[in-house]
Design a protein around this nucleic acid. Structure first.
Lengths: 218, 218
DNA sequence: TGACTTTATATTGCATGCAATTTTGGATTT
DNA sequence: AAATCCAAAATTGCATGCAATATAAAGTCA
């Protein structure tokens, strides 16, 4: 794990820590010490401090005064909370999007859909494509939400979804579930193309509810 | 303006800057310089930096790399965005709350309602009570949202509402609007007491829509 | 032995100094 | 006079050192 680009040091450090949390390199409730990160990345404690605070406000870590920051633990309760909020905000987002989305974005979503469908049919022989599907799925949802044009909505959903880890985990999906999910995506896209707000809101709700039962019952 | 309590320096500095923004002491788009704040409050630049970054993530300021932070300007677009989101999240919150609210909270809400009603009848002779009403109104909404039990929902709405300034401004309300708003509060409370989710969701939507037309059309 | 105090260590919180970047004012050129 | 360039000032970004605080461990007393 190494510092990637040449933006600010804080951004690079944040990125590294985020990836390490996602990758399971830091475990839930594990404290992340400023000094160790600083030494490991060969920077001073100052940018590390700022990166940690940023990650706290993004929901990746929780801060305990005078004790430091530790990786946020993910409980069933947390999963339910995030799903409950997504269940009202994402339909709202696509509902807004269907009135103002442009052709370029539609094409991009189309291509994401097709890529995911292709990968889906490979999942039984090459299980590792699940991660690629998860990444594309995240892109799809984000592109949809971005098309809503409500910058606060975009920000809220971004932080909810990115920190949730759920969207990176398609492990519970068998081939049937995956295919249904792909059909949902295609239908969401159709409904947006048609500019039919009620349709898109409801198919999005169905999409999320299907996902919820998979994640929560398992 | 002075540092109040003896928690961490960062928290104190944040508090002071927040108040100065609310109070109009810093104007929209005005840059807040680390050095000047540090000197003014007799602390070093380090806690000021951290406070500024916190305020950025709360939506009070916007950060421009290598340029500093400036007070976020509030546009009609921003107001619309916040209202649109509140319009789906607050009904959801009270809908959840009506199934799990406890007697103490209900009493507290009751007392807030009565206080606001009393103040409302004084508003024509003593205009300065508008600020008190606004403060109690904020408390009322927050107590309601807190009763939802969804910590992320609470956090999202807190940051949306607190940074919006709109809820602190009852200037556009004539006595008729104020009385209607108070009736809404009472009815929300009744509906929550009755545990009637659909009722409380809809009266909350009506409450917010009434407020929106006042704020947006003005 | 068990509870309490004390001391040592680890860690965050804050201050200060220097480097890097951006802005600004004036000098220079066309 | 307008535009361009350059240098000085202002400002953020980062590093380092010290102080304050919390944790852990050792020691003391009943």
């Amino acid at each position: 794990m190494t510092i990637s680009e040449s933006k600010t040091t804080v951004a690079s450090v944040s990125e590294v820590i985020r990836q390490k949390i996602q990758g399971g390199c830091y475990k839930p409730h594990e404290f992340i010490r400023e000094a160790s990160v600083a030494q490991e990345l060969a920077v001073s404690r100052t940018p590390v401090r700022e990166a940690l605070r940023a990650l706290v406000s993004e929901g990746w870590l929780e801060a305990i005064p005078n004790r430091g920051c530790r990786v946020a633990a993910w409980t069933q309760q947390d999963a339910r909370e995030v799903f409950d909020i997504r269940l009202v905000l994402e339909p709202m987002a696509v509902g807004l999007a269907c009135h103002r989305i442009d052709a370029d974005t539609l094409n991009r979503l189309d291509s994401l859909c097709r890529s995911m469908e292709v990968l889906t049919e490979k999942v039984e022989t090459r299980p590792e494509v699940r991660n690629q599907i998860a990444a594309l799925n995240l892109e799809f949802h984000q592109a949809m939400v971005n098309a809503s044009g409500n910058s606060r909505l975009i920000g809220v959903l971004e932080s909810l979804v990115r920190s949730s880890l759920i969207s990176r985990n398609f492990a519970n999906y068998d081939i049937g579930h995956l295919r249904r999910s792909m059909r949902h995506h295609a239908e969401i896209l159709q409904a947006v193309r048609a500019g039919n707000q009620e349709w898109v809101e409801n198919i999005m709700r169905a999409h999320l509810l299907a996902a919820r039962t998979l994640h929560m019952d398992a």
